[in-house]
């Protein structure tokens, strides 16, 4: 049962990544180009729909399927960049904090507390107020919110690994601190960080969608899933497909990464399995 849902999730995630990578080359319509004659066309199977627009069109006559596919690429890009930025910054700060300890640890951890206490939406609205919504902005905002989780995890794991004898042994072999961190600490804390990263894919997609929904995310006309849901909300009754399909896309991807993340946690958290005696 557990395996079934895991495989299903893995399949979904593969489909998402594949769609993001090659999908845009396969769809027939330009996701940004509307056609005034084809505004709010229903999906192919509904009354009045046509095979030309499988999932219908939005209020500007843009093909919903093409936009979802393009949106997948956008979401994946945001995820990759955010997790890359937040992961690197957070891991660096957390590892340093745990490894060095002392006053540096205390300062950095207060910083983490601060980052955790900032209201994300407010921050995004604030940033949008002082500058135009842009791709860079949304990545900065989401990264700013998420790095602290890596920092927490990296610090805790570093504290655990730092006390293992192999770290002392490396020191007695004459290894410098940088090499100890890169060769001994990071490889041993990586599994837990990978779990965090996996679970965050879902968080990033939701955050990005929420921000785009509020109009402070990915700037139009880029087809963010969140922005698409927002776009369609005035026609939910008459043209349900505009909001529903991107909504389902969000739901499926987030669910898939969470199932995978949970499975990874189960597998990696016993982590360094020991059998003393």
């Amino acid at each position: 049962m557990r395996n079934l849902s895991f495989n299903f999730a893995l399949g979904l995630l593969a489909l998402f990544v594949l769609t993001a990578l090659v999908g845009p080359y396969l769809v027939q319509h330009d996701p940004l180009q509307g056609s005034l004659r084809a505004r709010l066309d229903p999906p192919a199977w509904a009354e009045g729909g046509s095979a030309d627009h499988l999932l219908g069109t939005d209020r500007l006559g843009r093909d919903v399927l093409s936009r979802i596919v393009e949106g997948a690429r956008l979401s994946l890009a945001v995820c990759a960049v955010v997790i890359g930025v937040a992961g690197t910054v957070g891991t660096a700060i957390g590892t340093l904090s745990g490894y060095v300890g002392g006053w540096l640890d205390r300062i950095l951890m207060r910083l983490v507390d601060l980052a955790l206490s900032l209201p994300v939406i407010l921050l995004a609205l604030l940033l949008a107020a002082v500058s135009e919504p842009s791709f860079t902005n949304i990545i900065l905002v989401i990264s700013f919110v998420l790095w602290s989780q890596y920092a927490r995890m990296a610090r805790g794991e570093t504290l655990r690994v730092k006390n293992e004898d192999f770290v002392d042994l490396a020191r007695t072999s004459g290894l410098g601190h940088a090499r100890i961190i890169f060769r001994h600490i990071l490889p041993n804390i990586a599994p837990s960080l990978i779990v965090v990263a996996t679970l965050q894919v879902g968080v990033v997609i939701i955050l990005e969608s929420s921000l785009s929904f509020l109009g402070v995310g990915v700037p139009p006309p880029n087809p963010s899933w969140g922005a698409m849901v927002a776009d369609g909300r005035s026609y939910v009754v008459t043209a349900w497909w505009v909001s529903l399909f991107p909504g389902i896309a969000i739901l499926l991807v987030v669910m898939a990464v969470n199932i995978i993340g949970d499975a990874l946690t189960d597998r990696l958290n016993p982590g360094l399995r020991r059998n003393d005696g």
Partner: peptide, 30 residues
Amino acid sequence: AVQPVFQNPYSSLSPRMRVRNIIAEPLLAT
């Protein structure tokens, strides 16, 4: 010239390294 052996052989070998690299570490580090 001075090399230690610790009590707990579970903690003294990094679980993510091959034995070859673990043993070669003191040679390559200096």
